[in-house]
Write a protein that binds this DNA or RNA. Sequence first.
DNA 1: TATACTATCCTTAGCGG
DNA 2: TCCGCTAAGGATAGTAT
Lengths: 201, 201
Amino acid sequence: MESSKKQTKGRQRIDTSRRRESEEDRLITFSKRRSGLYKKASELCALCNTELVVLMFSPSGKPFSFAHPNIDVIARRFLKLPQEDVTGGIINARLRNRINELNERLTQLGDEAQAEKERGQMLSHMAKVRPNKPLCDANIDELSDNDAGMLKAWLLELQDRIHNRFEELAANATAYAGAPASLVDDTNVASSRQGHGGMHF
Amino acid sequence: MESSKKQTKGRQRIDTSRRRESEEDRLITFSKRRSGLYKKASELCALCNTELVVLMFSPSGKPFSFAHPNIDVIARRFLKLPQEDVTGGIINARLRNRINELNERLTQLGDEAQAEKERGQMLSHMAKVRPNKPLCDANIDELSDNDAGMLKAWLLELQDRIHNRFEELAANATAYAGAPASLVDDTNVASSRQGHGGMHF
DNA sequence: TATACTATCCTTAGCGG
DNA sequence: TCCGCTAAGGATAGTAT
């Protein structure tokens, strides 16, 4: 057949240091690369027995997270899939996508407007706590060159930020969540914990 | 030339779901893939204007971290490199390695034995705080399926863990650090903060 | 909006210095 | 231990659905 014309342009080079122009492009790229990052993270966990947490905010301000190696085991239990692995590996592509979905639902407790609002609240809170220390993104690096005391101070600050963020999220979660907490059987969840065994961190 | 024999075997397929057998292999793989993960993270930050934190523990128990997009700017400032980018991009391979080194030094405040000791202390502490909730790796996923209140509880627990870990690290840091904190000019660092401008998270 | 496809670009396993 | 090299494997930009 003379249809030797390429079906697609294939992957094109982009400047990975420059922000994507279009908001839509940014969202698509974020979604794809977030999946890629999760995969890399989980592979690192599996290959090196590493414990790992990723926290991030999407371009639209939504929080996302990934945590730990054993997430696939938990996901199987949650998804009511058999624990034995028919593929011979720990995880396949489709299941991984399901896991990513779970990770996303895990932290999508507020909408974009809410996230922006919280961001403003956190900034003002931080200004109150340490008015002479702006605590910009740089601090972790700048502080690290000093001593453990300052690193500790930064971490306490980070804890405070996280705490306040999720205080807000928790306060407004009922309105956002599809079902109230009372519909979930807590004892059922608690009992399902016993079979896990491995405890790290 | 008849020397068409391959110089190396090139990249070989490995099972990314199975732990590397050799301790040395695990360390090498961890080092390489940690760099890769940092690169992916920084690209995601740059491309999508995303704010991002990665916390991880190496196979030997050492903590590592990566934070935020502007890390390269900060690293340049810290390394006393010119802010203008001669390569046209934000960052090149060599500089990225320097940044990774900084990230590593940032969190390498205790040796392996110390980390193990702390781990034990944290576990006993956690057992005291919530004796009926083992708080295994699974919790973040299990809790997420319930409601924001439980997610918040998990995060508070995580804060507690981080807090205790770094309380210990801070207490023992002077003995480990190469130089006492007084050798570092804090005012110099503080003044260098002003030029940063962007403040996120 | 998320998923599938594919050509192309990028990452990295295995070695060597 | 960390650096660089090479080639094979893997991730993904653009596209269509």
